[in-house]
Amino acid sequence: MPGTTAFWRDPFLPHVESRRACHSRACYKPDSHPTFSIGAVDAGGSIFTGSKDGKVALGIGSLVLVPAGCVHACNPLPGTPWSYQMLHLDAQWLQAHAPALDGDTAAVLHCSPLYAQFCAMNALLFSTASAAEKDAALLAFLGACTGARADLLPSERKPLPQQLAPVLEALQAQPSASLRQLAEAAGLSPYQLIRAFRATTGMTPHAFQLNAHVNRARSGLQAGTALAQLAHELGFADQSHLQRVFKAHAGITPGRYRGQDS
């Protein structure tokens, strides 16, 4: 059975986006999002990396809470498809409405009632219900999550070393800065920078740059920017290069993400 993917967005609820994937075999590179993400496994199995417990096996009914900026990956078991749902919430909106959920490390929950509530809430998002009904169901689910999240251990995220602060500033000012430029900003050799950056963020500087480009591409695609223009603005060699990198991180082509491909 071929895999299918569906996205839900609503201009009246700009703080939330949802995705449903069925019989997927897509694999993802480790990445991070500017949003707070909640995933649920509907069929098959998966291995999640990014929590304080290292690699965690996920099965039907497992829920994963991933804070904004947390490097993670979630891929199906070898040779088998899986089905899942994924919710992305604006980080500032979450802070205002469910601040207790916004920890520093990903968490895996195995709670059947909570999974059932997530499925019902997400089905409502994809339905023709009013925006007010959808927002109320979302807030009710987040309230239930808060109670479950309170039982988890506190974060173990490492603080950002002061030496790497200029590197992140350089990446903000010049997203496509070279490794040499970033190493000079930190006063380190390129090899020392790679080791220190990966130990802190979970990514090499290059992987961090690609991930940031993909997140910018998501925003551009939602805004209707042409793919060729995005490739040029983000510093990719061409449109095909952006398509390959986007699919490696998002598990879907830019066109399907925007909803233009069948």
Results as ranks from 00 to 15, higher is better:
Ser176Thr: 15
Ser262Tyr: 11
Leu164Ser: 10
Ala129Phe: 02
Arg256Trp: 02
Gln85Gly: 15
Ala129Gly: 14
Arg149His: 14
Ala144Met: 05
Lys55Ala: 15
Arg195Phe: 02
Ser112Glu: 10
Asp238Phe: 15
Tyr191Met: 15
Ser32Val: 13
Asp135His: 03
Ala250Val: 13
Leu89Gln: 03
Gln162Ile: 09
Val41Met: 14
Ser127Leu: 06
Leu87His: 05
Glu156Tyr: 06
Arg157His: 11
Ala131Arg: 13
Ser262Ile: 10
Ala226Asn: 07
Trp93Lys: 12
Thr105Asp: 12
Leu171Met: 14
Ile47Arg: 11
Leu124Asn: 01
Leu164Asp: 01
Pro34Asn: 13
Gln85Phe: 05
Leu171Lys: 06
Ala248Asn: 12
Leu13Ile: 12
Ala165Trp: 07
Glu169Lys: 08
Cys145Gly: 01
Ala170Lys: 11
Ala123Pro: 06
Cys111Gly: 04
Ala43Arg: 11
Gln95Val: 06
His213Thr: 00
His97Arg: 13
Thr201Lys: 03
Pro154Ala: 02
Gln162Leu: 14
Asp151Ile: 14
Asp104Met: 13
Asp53Gln: 09
Ile194Ala: 10
Ser46Thr: 05
Arg9Leu: 09
Leu58Met: 09
Ser127Gly: 11
Ala106Cys: 02
His249Ala: 06
Gln85Glu: 13
Ala177Cys: 03
Pro99Val: 04
Phe208Val: 14
Leu193Cys: 10
Phe141Ser: 05
Ala226Thr: 02
Leu234His: 07
Trp8Arg: 12
Val214Trp: 10
Lys134Leu: 00
Ala40Val: 09
His241Gln: 12
Ala170Arg: 12
Ala170Thr: 15
Leu125Arg: 00
Gly251Lys: 05
Thr4Arg: 12
Leu227Thr: 09
Pro205Tyr: 02
His33Gly: 08
Pro81Glu: 03
Ser46His: 02
Arg195Leu: 10
Pro30Val: 13
Thr204Met: 09
Ser83Gly: 09
Ala231Trp: 03
Gly54Ser: 06
Ala148Ile: 03
Ala73Leu: 08
His206Asn: 15
